[in-house]
Design a protein around this nucleic acid. Structure first.
Length: 497
RNA sequence: GGUUGGGUGGCCGAGUGGCUAGGCUCAGGUCUGCAAAACCUGCUACGGCGGUUCGAAUCCGCUCCCAACCUCCA
């Protein structure tokens, strides 16, 4: 499994063979949330995508340093108020309380989706000094100017110096941007509309403020990512990720700040996840086309007919490539719920199988090996989880057929079957990050297990007596209680939910 | 208007110049006391119009439509 990994680089707009700066190590930076309100589903999708990427890189044997920041200052609303300050005002809390509250909520949600924590989770407010130093470095290079205690990045000067680099990530040309934005807004302090604040003067009443060479103020949005990625991953590092909507201006400005402060390259591979849509349109809090993760878990929303657990959602995300838009609809979620259930069922079935063939595999054994290898190979192609999952489902059919007797275990060597248990388990749980929710829901509950053994014994007796009325009554009553009974060749099995 | 990415079977969703993923749904079948599950079979699609090619859903051109970004957003 030491194949080449190819990654789609947004900067070059093509797939490239991944080669880290330092052999065996990967520096991964992902733009984290601004913690001024509850996480929304789009965040969950993005961070789950990167979680799978993180997991796969580790699976490939890389030692990964995964840095994902928390933005808790500098991010302004339309009206120019800091998002954290606004939250503090509305909720009558300290800004740091707001940040902590939503950081906690964010962490909790990440855990529910079974996303691994990053190795470093730096906060913008914890890196004011680094940001001030970066502002200073940019000024020293003549690429920023101060006006009334605020410092602006001089985009035009930067673009001249780098011979037109500004906008290269998002495909924008500065002169076109200028023509556009001139009419939109006149921000008096800027020399140019496309310039952006890297340090902002704190007006009276602005709570978040720090001393700086330019007076009391606070860092501009964009700057924290440049400063913190540099601090923890270096002036040049491997992968930078984030949502598609951050390409411009956030990432474009980050690049400018990195290059503008040290003349260095920053990230070598840029990865962007695509948007989550609902019913064909972007999810947006402002226009009501939105649903919270919590609402999906409980099914309490006009947009869904059923509840969908975190793992059903994770499975749903796996079915779409991270660079494609993902359209959330009730029917699609229904399909995911079914598919996830079938996958977990097959996983359980696999555990009960023993290869009965000789050392040499028959056709079925060889197919099993090819399919699981194929699944891993798909992951090497820009983390193609939908294709990998397709291979897995071909395995599901084989596994179920072996279990059901439609395919013969004589065709599978014990060695192959044992290896499959190992490699499929690794793929499903370590790489995809799925969890078997059915287990958590009761099968490992000792008391319930014993009760169920008893009930099913009684029912088996009734069935042996051809007392169909009683056996059906038991089955129906259990169904009512949320327990599904299935009669198989070797007796009945049961599942919760 | 500019930028970026799309338009695939009933729904979702991959994908490659020819060998027609996968999930869900639906129909038929096997199995079963029944049911469920499972397995098998079927539903053979690529927005429109041209072009390149022996051959294109896949390459090129034009056109229509959609989404995101350009303003806070993963």
């Amino acid at each position: 499994m030491s194949q080449e990994l190819t990654i789609y680089n947004s900067m070059t707009r093509q797939k490239e063979v991944f080669a880290p700066l330092v052999e065996g190590h990967v520096g991964l930076y992902v733009c984290g949330p601004t913690v001024y309100s509850d996480v929304h589903l789009g965040n969950c999708r993005t961070f789950t995508s990167f979680d799978i990427i993180y997991r796969y890189l580790m699976h490939k044997g890389y030692k990964v340093r995964y840095v994902r920041n928390i933005t808790d200052v500098g991010h302004l609303t339309d009206s120019g108020e800091d998002k954290l300050s606004k939250g503090a005002r509305l909720e009558k809390l300290e800004p740091m309380e707001v940040a902590q509250k939503y950081t906690n909520g964010f962490h909790d949600m990440m855990r529910r989706f079974n996303n691994l924590p990053p190795n470093i989770e730096p906060r913008a407010t914890g890196h004011i000094i680094e940001q001030i130093e970066m502002v200073q470095a940019i000024m020293d290079n003549g690429l920023a100017y101060e006006v009334n205690g605020s410092v602006y990045f001089d985009v035009e000067a930067y673009n001249r110096k780098t011979e037109g680099d500004y906008g290269k990530l998002s495909g924008r040309k500065l002169d076109e941007l200028l023509a556009e934005s001139r009419e939109l807004k006149s921000q008096d302090e800027k020399r140019n509309p496309s310039d952006f604040a890297i340090w902002m003067n704190a007006h009276e009443g602005h709570i978040l403020r720090w001393n700086s060479p330019w007076g009391e103020g606070f860092p501009g949005w964009h700057l924290e990512c440049s400063a913190m990625s540099t601090k923890y991953l270096g002036q040049e590092f491997d992968i930078h990720g984030g949502g598609n909507d951050l390409k411009f201006p956030h990432h474009e400005n980050e690049i400018a700040q990195n290059a503008g402060s040290c003349g260095c390259g920053g990230a070598r591979y840029w990865l962007h996840t695509n948007m989550l849509l609902m019913n064909g349109r972007k999810m947006s809090k402002s226009d009501g086309n939105t649903i919270t993760p919590q609402q999906l878990f409980t099914g309490d929303s006009e947009h869904v007919s059923d509840s969908y657990s975190p793992m059903v959602l994770r499975f749903f995300m796996l079915q779409t490539h991270y660079r494609s838009t993902m359209d959330l609809t009730d029917t699609a979620l229904q399909a995911a719920k079914k598919g996830y259930g079938r996958l977990m069922e097959a996983w359980k079935n696999l555990q009960s199988l023993e290869g009965k063939g000789g050392a040499q595999n028959g056709t079925v054994g060889r197919e099993l090996e090819e399919l699981i290898e194929g699944a891993y190979a798909e992951m090497d192609d820009d983390f193609n989880t939908p294709k990998a999952l397709a291979k897995v489902f071909e395995l599901v059919s084989r596994i179920n057929a072996l279990k059901g007797g439609q395919l013969s275990l004589e065709e599978v060597s014990p060695k192959t079957l044992e290896a499959l248990k190992e490699t499929l388990g690794t793929l499903l749980f370590d790489v995809f990050g799925l969890q078997d929710e059915g287990v958590a829901a009761g099968a490992d509950n000792d008391a319930l297990s014993k009760v169920m053994d008893l009930v099913l014994d009684l029912r088996a007796q009734a069935r042996a007596d051809k007392n169909w009325t009683l056996s059906d009554q038991l089955r129906d009553a259990l169904k009512e209680a949320g327990i599904t009974v299935k009669d198989g060749k070797d007796g009945a099995t049961w599942t919760v939910g």
